[in-house]
Design a protein around this nucleic acid. Structure first.
Length: 281
DNA sequence: AGTATCCTGGAA
DNA sequence: TTCCAGGATACT
């Protein structure tokens, strides 16, 4: 599911294809995903695409923005060719467009089409004045971005004050932005830390290890173009490769890549949590 | 700090 | 046929 590396990959793709092009029409098939008046975007030219944690923002040249959170199964799929509107929607394969889960369609001035799909319908898209972006609850409360805004010292401060399991802290978007279940599990494995240990009980050297591990797995994820777990694809509908590099995520009862011990799965604050009982103390 | 909730496909 | 997965939020 899209976490920081996946959303960054989507952002890079959208930026590459959309900047400088204006929207000619928008079709909203599932209004509950969409907030605000889409009229504000008609004729507006894409000026920038930004990412804040797992949030995406498409800025237009008329001072409006489209803020998006794809949650688990939202997809932007760009195609340079205009597909006839009466195209029969039969293929159920996610990643092909349009399909059963295409809920919003953006038509651009260069005949490009941007499809928005979402199987589970948890995602949201909101039109807002660019200047008011940070009045949206999600953006307003978002913590620092680990790749660009989080120093080792700041990370240490957050961890040391946390009276909750370290994994729960990593997943809290208000503390640190962009980490989800895949990278939280893998980072803790790489750092050799038990996900259940409270942040405040970690030693300074463990905190440093975890900081390095976190950046390492996020960067690896980014290099691989994300992890195509669930139905993640990039802005061209292509899969990423990090799913082939999972350390512990989804590997219950499989041998630890370091010591061969069976990977265990437990539930921690409601989320599946994978770890090696021998390597992670 | 933990849990129900939104939703649907896929696994058990 | 039932259960589970998950991100963020609204609850408790």
């Amino acid at each position: 599911m899209p976490e920081l590396p996946e959303v960054e990959t989507i952002k890079i793709g959208l930026k590459r294809y959309l900047i400088g092009h204006s929207i000619e029409n928008i079709i909203i098939k599932l209004p509950k995903l969409f907030t605000g008046d889409s009229q504000f975007l008609l004729g507006a030219k894409v000026a920038d695409v930004r990412r804040f944690g797992k949030g995406l923002v498409i800025d237009f040249d008329n001072a409006y923005s489209l803020a998006v959170h794809v949650k688990m199964t939202g997809q932007f799929i760009y195609t340079g060719k205009k597909v006839p509107e009466n195209t029969v929607i039969s293929a159920k394969k996610v990643g092909h467009v349009p399909n059963l889960w295409t809920h919003i369609i953006f038509y651009f001035d260069d005949n490009a089409v941007l499809y928005y799909n979402d199987v589970r319908q948890f995602s949201w898209l909101k039109i807002i004045k660019t200047s008011e972006l940070f009045s949206l609850p999600f953006f307003k409360t978002l913590g620092p971005d680990p790749l660009t805004q989080l120093s080792p010292d700041q990370f240490g401060f957050l961890v040391k004050r946390a009276d909750k399991p370290i994994k729960t802290l990593l997943l809290d978007q208000k503390e640190i932005a962009g980490i989800g279940n895949i990278y939280a599990n893998d980072a803790l494995f790489v750092a050799g830390i038990d996900p259940r240990i409270k942040g405040k009980n970690l030693t300074s050297s463990e905190v440093k290890k975890l900081y390095r591990a976190l950046l390492k797995v996020l960067q690896k994820g980014l290099e691989e173009g994300g992890a195509s777990e669930m139905n993640y694809v990039n802005a061209l509908g292509e899969e990423g490769g990090y799913q082939h590099h999972f350390q512990v995520y989804g590997r219950e009862n499989k041998p630890c890549l370091v010591c061969k011990t069976k990977i265990e799965k437990i539930k921690l604050s409601g989320r599946g949590t994978y770890f090696c009982p021998k390597c992670q103390k």
